[in-house]
Design a protein around this nucleic acid. Structure first.
Lengths: 206, 206, 206, 206
DNA sequence: CATGAATGAGCCTTCATTCAT
DNA sequence: TATGAATGAAGGCTCATTCAT
């Protein structure tokens, strides 16, 4: 009988486990965003859940491990979006635009999830090399090399360009978040235009 | 005679004080770069000097104060360079190029000063909103608005563009540091070209 | 059944918590008595227990908080005794005597609890304004004003007299502790006699 | 010639030395009064002078040594006063009264010297066993034993009585300082009356 | 598994004291 | 002697992590 009960409850337990894990990840995302990796403490993360401190260690071995899990999660969520954008794109421009839109949506989501005022100022802002960014880098770079190979883009330094895309995405993304309401399309237009045609292109949508 | 010399030279004490201050600042620069603001501890900084722990507090009241001193220092060194670039520039393109060159030189200097392998991998890279960056933002923005007003540049969103410049500077700068030898001119050509003409411009120098 | 017992008894954890709290309070009492408030350090207190340094902060936020807890504790234990003495007293003399006896017992208890040689010499003795003393002051003063109002005592300066009582209690109390064995009754006789009849009264019991 | 100058300036130097010593003692008195022995730091004392921190150690080996010097000083200033009071006294009552007046004047002086509001509240008031108090104790005790020997006072417990005098002096003294203006005569009347005749005696002067 | 108190390493900071100038 | 920067021990406190319940 005990076994039966145990079996019946196993499902519940599993669900709790998953829920706890998600709860920790959600809290960690918020905390890392607010305090940065170094500034965040495991206690901060736990405080963001309704779990006890010890429970954290049933799910993650350390702060680093949650961070990595979070990063993997980010990449796992974001990379397919990017990839799909690449597959569906009818042109390099189209691809770039979709990618920016996707990224800008993504950061808006993350900011909203955290439920904190988008414009809040923190003492020492640090920007982390998130896995999303790595994904962007690799996707953009790949896509760019393809475009160059197909003659759809001039022969630029793909590394530099991918980096520039990341920089633009991050900074213009931040600037966009500071506006209300944030307009992902406009921001993506700007970014795409800038990259493709430079100032003239960036001015297009104005 | 002793007096005369004393007037001309700094006393030994004064010299030590200046040297200690610089020693702390240098160590702090390195530590902040390696560990980020939150990750850095005053002890880390002290460990980077040959001073005793208490000595730190003869020079700075707290970690924050060294950080600010460092930041002020950066801005104080960098802003005039930018400003001069603006005044001496014969065109907006010329200005942009000088600014990028200046910034890229600047980060090379800072990296060399630290004496650490330029390519070193760190666990959780964070990029801080340094005052140099604020300076870049404001200078670029101002310069851009002037250029627009004079008809030298199309009517772009000056905020977004300044942000994009910062993003490009940071990321392309990082990428440049990863190459050996870093070529500031090439990187500046790339950035300037990208901003002014987009992909086509960026490809020019390739 | 287990439940019933659990309800009746404290769990092991609860017991440990209570014991630790008491352990800290006991150690703190001793340390404050030996070193004074300023001289005492949290580490001193911890050293007086078998706990780790961090554990202290699971119970008290700071040195001040233990001190206050100790003080509250003292007042909570002592004030009711005083009040009862007042209610049960058949005369002002009776009240005074009971109060002194109570106080003298109280300090003997505290000294014994600390387990330190009653006569020990300390470098810089300090006497703190404990809440017990505040309680004495207020009780004595109230009682005295009642006595005056009822014609049981002459019209003295109630503030000065209450202060004098405290001073006598403290100093005669200390002197009593220096004797072995301490005789609370004799000390109380002395104090009561002195206050009621002056020298002649104080000499009565000799 | 150098010698001559050195000799001439010796006087000045000596004067400076004395002045520095006094300056430190004065600052220390204030600091100890404000912060208590343990709470006071050498830095606090130095800050109260216009000397450099190192100079302190040309005059005193440690905080303890200043404290002792201060204590000696207090005793040296106060004991002769008490002794004179004893010699000039026409009766035990007269002596007691003079002694209390002297003590009350003394603490008013010390409070005024410190230039701090007499009524100021400190977080954890501690009362130190000052040497003045030791002097009072010994003087009172001696005087009392004389009085008993001469049949001028009943056979009381001289130790307890001396202690009681100290307690009364301290507490009534404090209470007196809290009033404005402090009336040393009234306070001394109260104390003397209390000690000699108890309540009735204390009420006399009301 | 969940809990949360215990642990102790380590951080920031202050301070008494020394010592080169 | 006076100076005041340097020193490092020590204090208050936090935190990641463990472990008995």
């Amino acid at each position: 009988m005990t076994d039966t009960i145990a079996e019946l409850e196993l499902g519940k337990r599993e669900k709790t486990k998953v829920a706890n894990r998600l709860s920790i990840l959600a809290a960690a995302r918020k905390v890392f965003a607010e305090l940065g990796y170094e500034g965040a403490t495991v206690r901060d993360i736990i405080r963001g859940t309704d779990l006890a401190s010890g429970t954290f260690y049933n799910y993650f071995k350390s702060k680093e491990e949650v961070f990595d899990a979070l990063a993997d999660d980010g990449a796992r969520r974001f990379r397919p979006i990017l990839r799909m954008a690449r597959q569906n794109a009818r042109s390099f421009e189209d691809y770039l635009h979709s990618a920016f839109v996707a990224y800008f949506h993504f950061i808006i989501q993350d900011n909203l999830l955290e439920g904190r005022p988008i414009n809040e100022r923190r003492p020492h802002v640090t920007r982390m090399d998130t896995p999303e960014m790595s994904a962007v880098y690799q996707e953009v770079r790949q896509s760019l090399e393809d475009a160059i190979a197909h003659g759809d883009a001039p022969r630029v330094d793909a590394d530099y360009l991918a980096c520039a895309c990341i920089g633009i995405a991050q900074e213009v993304g931040s600037a966009m978040l500071r506006r209300s309401p944030p307009d992902t399309d406009a921001a993506a237009d700007f970014a795409t235009g800038l990259i493709l045609k430079g100032l003239a292109g960036a001015a297009r949508q104005a």
